[in-house]
Design a protein around this nucleic acid. Sequence first.
DNA 1: GTGGTCTAGACCACC
DNA 2: GTGGTCTAGACCACA
Lengths: 112, 112, 112, 112
Amino acid sequence: MNFNTEKPIYLQIVDVISDRILSGELKGGDRIPSVREYGADIGVNPNTMMRSYEKLTADGIIYNKRGIGYFVADDARETVLRDQRKDFIEKEVPAIRQRMQLLGLDSSIFNA
Amino acid sequence: MNFNTEKPIYLQIVDVISDRILSGELKGGDRIPSVREYGADIGVNPNTMMRSYEKLTADGIIYNKRGIGYFVADDARETVLRDQRKDFIEKEVPAIRQRMQLLGLDSSIFNA
Amino acid sequence: MNFNTEKPIYLQIVDVISDRILSGELKGGDRIPSVREYGADIGVNPNTMMRSYEKLTADGIIYNKRGIGYFVADDARETVLRDQRKDFIEKEVPAIRQRMQLLGLDSSIFNA
Amino acid sequence: MNFNTEKPIYLQIVDVISDRILSGELKGGDRIPSVREYGADIGVNPNTMMRSYEKLTADGIIYNKRGIGYFVADDARETVLRDQRKDFIEKEVPAIRQRMQLLGLDSSIFNA
DNA sequence: GTGGTCTAGACCACC
DNA sequence: GTGGTCTAGACCACA
């Protein structure tokens, strides 16, 4: 996988997994690979992988069954959708609007 | 000044100065304060200030006159505007559009 | 290491590393020592080392893997060669030719 | 005048005056403008101008008549020619040859 | 372990 | 006075 240098890798992985849930590729109850397996798969240190899983767990997106593995929460898609929408609308939209104004751009650039 | 912890201080200073140029508060040819002066002003170490000036110089926004100080480039506003627009349109817009689609939102949220 | 006082140390280090790449001693993909290690090695502060690495990164000669270290870019040798040739031919050659003419010398002094 | 940022202004002025002597534009016995006059002319601080004259005086290229002004030395052209040739042949030529070898260039670039 | 940022303080050349 | 470089030492996030 190609990671961008500006953002921590573990957060980029969180984004990828969240997107897979949003798109329906991963569903509630699905097991996700172990940190070792997934880490080896995408060429990342298991510690880093672990941090991603911890973050997803803290956010209620996945949960752990001890000795078995990590699973997608039943309401994962709803949670991701709700959290991201809230974040997007409350934080990003105002920043984007301000920036567009400063740069003399208007929202039509999103329609093209 | 209040700095945000997510982004390096020296880059936040770059943003502030860029915005002052965009808004017309700083114009081509204007001298900007010395690293010591500006640093004392906003409670930042002169070395940190220097990093901001180095970045702005590398971007062609300001230039140095030896032993005298830093000055706003004649075409600074155009440069800032062009660079930021390019960055916004090429990098942010596609990411935003993709995210909106995934979240089931449309561009009308930017019109309200 | 012996540094010359006329040129900043961090740029002299950039030159040394560039030359090691040009000569083939360092190849694409090779890891270069950490700022602490290399710094201790040549008796220079890690911050100074960092400046050298920043410059090399900005020039596309090396790149960083987060938390791991710096690596020589795959096309580093080509980049160094191209950049230095360009600089030499466009900037130095005209200056040298002018100076030789003024001093009444000709290019045979380079053949001896 | 346009000064380059890499080299001290006072040395760039020394170069200009040396070149004017080499080219025959300034001859032995000619008076050169006062530091104030010359400085105003090229937009430079008189202190800076003074440093140039001091350097040229130390090198035996010009001399001062107290209360009258600075004059080009009778043997100025010979001195400049000798000093610059020595410097060029002993210091620059070896460096240039080494660099050309590293870059895979040959002296024909000076003939074109 | 790695880099990245920041502070404090110093020294220097230059204008 | 100005910037520019360098050191020392600290703290932090990330892998």
